[in-house]
Nucleic acid binder design. Structure first.
Lengths: 246, 246
DNA sequence: TATGTCGCTTTGACAGGACAAACTATATAT
DNA sequence: ATATATAGTTTGTCCTGTCAAAGCGACATA
């Protein structure tokens, strides 16, 4: 009934206790020691065993429920979710995703300009009149084959961008280094077919299917930092996500 | 500096206090009385004014931060997010979405069978050996024009389905009426081009772009209730979502 | 002028306790 | 055998309280 579940708590660590608990449980789920469908110890027991308060345990479990790893039911207990269901779609960049997947992304900068914002971009980014933007297009490849064509606009009052750094690093990486803390993004995913130019750049047939994505990202001060319009080869990329009922 | 923000709390209501607060704030944001960028009262003050405890207020705000309506920053306060960003992608059905948008969806049942589960479906739904499935395809139209082609498999030990009810009602509606409480869904979105048959059914050109979506949904007991593979006309449908940094 | 320190404000983390509501299973009555 | 009550388990909601950490601005200092 009750799985032992050994979690180490380090009270001197700067990382919050509830997060240590969450990581511990998540780790046990991912390495298989907590199989899907298993019922966890109840909150009170776990709290006593780890010498933590119930609110702390609950906060940890709340987070795991939110990311779709656990389900709770009053009067019954907390269960590990079936293994096919995995991770929540997070605010991450293509570059990061590829690096995590061990692919080795490379980037070609196709165009770069520093210009006053066109009206529709000024609107999308809610820009003050005197702020200009960087506008550039990049080709992202993984494992040597082209994957995505990305067009972006970034306001110029937050970070200074140039051709060489964009070749070498992901955009989100550069922005984070410049002190930007992303909070939210609004994203739209659809489909289209490749026109001549896109087909040529992506090394695909004209008329082949592409996944389209438009995104606007907001930092912790509420500024719209970046907006972009990307297309991905449909045979090489799709968006995966876990939805959680609230 | 501090916006007044009048929220009515009904302590005799069965709906939790924190949720009443969240609804109150969300309402004020949506009807414009809390403009985007506004700083809210601090948690302690708001708690005192509404005669609630700080944890209750915090829980309400946590939920709104999760749904992307608010951003918090230690030492600064809590702000309403810029107005373009809104609404988390929720676990909802196409039918519900269309009805909410006032479109008047209609459904044509193209095929229907009640069969033993094929191996890959048995795997996707983690079915016991003796459970069979309903397998059916539907065409969903909105405002008279075809929009989506949907193929679904539903395990037969939870709900009894028949042709007539599927013509008249959405699948999720039928499942909810049968007492199914959805908790999670795993979803993958991509793109493809329409083959002859799809083009004909959807009243589109062969080779035109389609958005693809595969989904498996889990209920509160951890069972995989339903899996499906859908295609949407790309010129009429796209997926919109707000991502929140955790 | 520039820089660092200090204090104020606000959110973040954590504890411990109390009762309510939902679910399960067992025992009881019809 | 079939309902019906009942007790026990577990999560849900809500409270009071305490201290820490981050951000910001004012002030003092070099």
């Amino acid at each position: 009934m009750s799985t032992p579940l050994s979690i180490k708590i380090d009270r001197s660590s700067p990382i919050p206790l509830y997060h240590q608990v969450a990581q511990g449980i998540e780790g046990a789920i991912r390495d298989g020691s907590l199989a899907s469908g298993t019922r966890l110890e109840n909150e009170i027991e776990l709290a006593q065993r780890l010498r933590l308060s119930r609110p702390t345990i609950r906060k940890a479990m709340d987070d795991l429920v939110q990311s779709g790893l656990l389900v709770r039911k009053r009067g019954v207990g907390t269960q590990v979710v079936s293994s096919q269901i995995r991770r929540h779609l997070e605010l991450s960049s293509l570059n990061d995703d590829l690096e995590r997947a061990g692919k080795k992304p490379s980037t070609t900068l196709l165009s770069f300009e520093h210009i006053p914002a066109p009206p529709e971009i000024q609107d999308l980014l809610s820009l003050p009149k005197d702020v200009s933007v960087y506008h550039f297009t990049r080709l992202r490849s993984a494992g040597g084959s082209p994957l995505a064509l990305m067009e972006n606009w970034v306001r110029d009052d937050i970070v200074e961008l140039d051709e060489t750094s964009l070749q070498a690093h992901g955009l989100y990486e550069l922005l984070r280094e410049a002190g930007v803390n992303f909070r939210l993004a609004q994203q739209r995913i659809g489909a289209t077919t490749a026109d001549e130019a896109q087909a040529k750049t992506l090394d695909a047939a004209a008329g082949s299917a592409l996944v389209t994505m438009q995104r606007t990202a907001v930092d912790d001060t509420g500024r719209n930092v970046e907006t972009g319009s990307h297309v991905y080869r449909a045979d090489a990329y799709s968006f995966e996500m876990t939805l959680v009922q609230r």
